[in-house]
Simulated scan of single mutants.
Amino acid sequence: MLSLIKLPRVFTINQVPKVFHEDSIISGYRHPRSSATDCILSLFQLTNETLNIWTHFLPTWYFLWKLVMVVLIQRAWQDSFTWPLLIFLFSCCIYPLTSSCAHTFSTMSARARHICFFFDYGALSFYSLGSAIVYSAYVFPDKWMNSLFHQYYIPIAVLNTVICTALACYSRLGFPFLQYNHDIMKRFPECQRPKFSKYMRVVAFAYPYLFDNIPLFYRVFFCVGEGCTDMNTNILHYYHITLALLTGFLFATHLPERLAPGSFDYIGHSHQLFHVCGILATHFQMEAVEQDMMIRRSWLREHSLPITFASSLGAALFCVVQNLIIIILFSLPLLSGPVCKEKKHNKGKKRSSAKVSPCC
């Protein structure tokens, strides 16, 4: 059936505008002015994005199944103790689905690419808050329960999600209210300083992860003796932490393709491995917090802070609203002027067969 459909053509790095370039990826690029139909058809051909899409799209259904099981079996809406798990599982569904959609439709235009990844960043920061909410409810070590840090943990995590989304979006376009000045538009970080933009995104997502995991790191690595919650669940937390650190390493280093540019364009490059390790880390994280919740349920109900709407569902809704506002603020300038201007080449080399404007 697919043999009867004309699949979109793929291009090399020299045939697409700079804004679409990926570090050490030489070939397999889709047309930078793809239609929505072309983007969907590209799911069924091998490009440098194909596995990026599927490695997040398929796990979405697994996490959705887990979410449905919690809603149907544990009757989450009737028991506030289950609300944090519900929010966490919802965030586990949202971030891979948003990522797969961003990778799918990011080649419709440079504007679409930026906006798609704005939503991707927002979904990741929401997942960060989901992790903080579920950690506050079930994972905190016994001796930290009801401490001052525990009381302010969720409010700080909410603030971190706003900072994370804003900083990640800024790394692509700079300050949105300056973008109406077309002279400023020539200085978009993503176009002019891609490495600096990447470092900013690493910081944007590493910071909330490290903060969210302070109670977990203390519990599994530093706490000894009474009140340290030393249970069999800790081995699952070790798996999650190891895979999460590997995920960050792959995202920051662009290995293995940096060692052999062009050799991992379609299969095995860092972003694919980053997706796989991230999903596996989320799986072990989910298994660990579910086990913590079940094993510690009676003790937590008696000793932990009460789970309220404000500390769970309310915080999640606030995060969604704030992230949408940030995404809108950063997206509006893209509709009023060119996205970026590439530097002119003095030797008069002709642009190759993609034949598209570098800005659009």
Rank of each mutant, 00 (worst) to 15 (best):
P176K: 03
F118E: 08
L129N: 09
F177M: 13
W83A: 01
N160L: 15
R113M: 10
Y135G: 05
Q192L: 04
M69C: 10
F90L: 14
P189Y: 01
F188R: 12
S125N: 12
A157N: 03
M108C: 15
S91K: 00
S99M: 07
A102H: 13
S80N: 08
Y121C: 10
M108F: 07
A166E: 05
Y153A: 10
A168E: 03
T165N: 10
K143V: 14
A132P: 04
N181S: 01
A168D: 01
N146A: 15
L129W: 05
P176A: 12
R75G: 15
P141I: 00
M69W: 13
V158P: 04
K186C: 04
F81W: 10
R187M: 14
L86V: 02
I133R: 09
F177H: 13
Y152S: 10
F88Y: 14
W77K: 08
C92D: 02
N160T: 00
F105I: 08
G174S: 07
D120T: 02
T98Y: 09
M108N: 10
R111W: 05
Y153M: 07
I156Y: 05
S80P: 14
T98A: 15
Y138D: 11
A132S: 08
E190F: 03
G122V: 09
S147A: 07
D183N: 15
D79L: 01
Y180H: 14
S131K: 05
R172W: 02
Y180T: 08
W77L: 05
Q78R: 09
R111F: 05
W144I: 13
H114Q: 10
I73D: 15
V70D: 12
T107C: 14
T165W: 02
T107M: 03
S147P: 03
M145P: 07
C116N: 11
T82F: 13
T165S: 15
M69G: 14
S109N: 03
W144P: 14
H150T: 04
I154H: 09
C101Q: 12
Q74P: 14
S171V: 01
C93H: 00
E190L: 02
Y138C: 11
E190H: 10
F140E: 07
M185Q: 12
T165P: 15
P96W: 07
R111M: 15
F117S: 08
L89S: 11
G122K: 00
L129E: 00
